[in-house]
Every structure is written in structure tokens, then in C-alpha cells.
């Protein structure tokens, strides 16, 4: 069953497959990982059926392998994402996304009167609740939650 779904997006020889991305966050994931700015061969499928997520998206990137710190950045928009590391058409390793305790950059602070929205400062948040996306700004101390989440880039 899982196999046939994956076939909807063509197989890659070496690289990374990111699965279980919520369909509506596909382009956010692409943007956070900077996949729109690299030359690697990239395929993605969107609105695939998923028992877990309703609609999910999947990304396959050839010849690209992520550091954990890099991949954890997508935790805000795809906390259930799963990574398959592919070598020679075979899955050699599986990884899950871990929600970091601190988020640097990536998200905008919801508070228009926050210094990060008024000067050229990288945002910094403490993650109060990773599953439900609750971020406390380390500058203005206001809470940015899922409904107010705006990804920078």
C-alpha cells in the first residue's frame, strides 16, 4: 500500500525523500529548506491520500543529504515528516523530525511592535509547545502560535 503511493512520484537513485508533509505546507517546507534555490533535481507530489494527515505531500531531492539541525527547521510546519535516505535506489536510513527547543530565524514574531519587526534582527524563539507550535519570542516575550505563524523567506 505504502509502496504504491510512493510510486506516484518517480524514484531517485541517491538522495532524500521527505514524506508525510501536510499538503498545505509543502511550499513552506521547500522554502525553509531552501530547495527553491538549489540546482539538485527535485520532484514533489502533493495532495496524496494519507491515513494520518488527510492530504499529504512528498518531496524527493536527488543527491541531497540534510544535517539534523537543518531538517529540524521544518518541524514547525511538518512535525510528522519522515525522511528516507536513499543510496542506489535503496532506503539506507530513516529519520524523523525533532522539534528543537529554540527556533532561530524561520518564523516571524506576531507582535508588530517587536524589535524583530522593526530592525534588522534575526528572530529567536523558545519553543513552549512543539506539537501545537507555540513560540515565545525571546525579545518581546509575546507568544506566536500556529494560527499566527508566518514563515520568513
Amino acid at each position: 500500500m505504502e509502496q504504491s503511493k510512493e510510486l506516484k512520484v518517480s524514484a531517485i537513485k541517491d538522495g532524500t525523500v521527505i514524506d508525510h508533509i501536510p499538503a498545505n505546507n509543502l511550499f513552506r517546507v521547500i522554502s525553509i529548506l531552501g530547495l527553491d534555490k538549489i540546482d539538485n533535481h527535485l520532484t514533489f507530489g502533493n495532495n496524496l491520500d494519507s491515513k494520518k494527515l488527510g492530504h499529504k505531500a512528498i518531496i524527493k531531492i536527488s543527491d541531497k543529504f540534510f544535517e539534523d539541525t537543518e531538517i529540524n527547521k521544518i518541524a514547525l510546519v511538518a512535525p510528522q515528516a519522515k525522511l528516507n535516505i536513499i543510496k542506489d535506489y535503496k532506503v539506507i536510513e530513516k529519520k524523523v523530525v525533532n522539534v528543537p527547543t529554540e527556533i532561530i530565524g524561520i518564523a516571524k514574531c506576531v507582535n508588530p511592535k517587536c524589535i524583530t519587526n522593526n530592525e534588522n534582527v534575526t528572530t529567536k524563539f523558545k519553543v513552549l509547545d512543539g506539537n501545537d507550535v507555540t513560540l515565545k519570542c525571546l525579545y518581546c516575550e509575546k507568544i506566536t502560535d500556529k494560527d499566527n505563524l508566518v514563515i520568513i523567506k
Partner: peptide, 27 residues
């Protein structure tokens, strides 16, 4: 400073200590 978090930013960049005398509605 009228902007919230300004004192925190100042304390990060300043080589001398900063005392916050009010940053917007924050602290």
C-alpha cells in the same frame, strides 16, 4: 525605547551593561 524587545537586543550587542528603563509594553 518604545519598541518591545529593544532592551534585549541592546544587551546582546552592547559591550557595557544595559539597564532597561522600559521597552514598550514589555518590561
Amino acid at each position: 525605547h518604545p519598541i518591545e524587545g529593544a532592551a534585549k537586543l541592546a544587551s546582546e550587542v552592547s559591550p557595557v551593561p544595559v539597564v532597561n528603563a522600559g521597552d514598550g509594553a514589555n518590561q
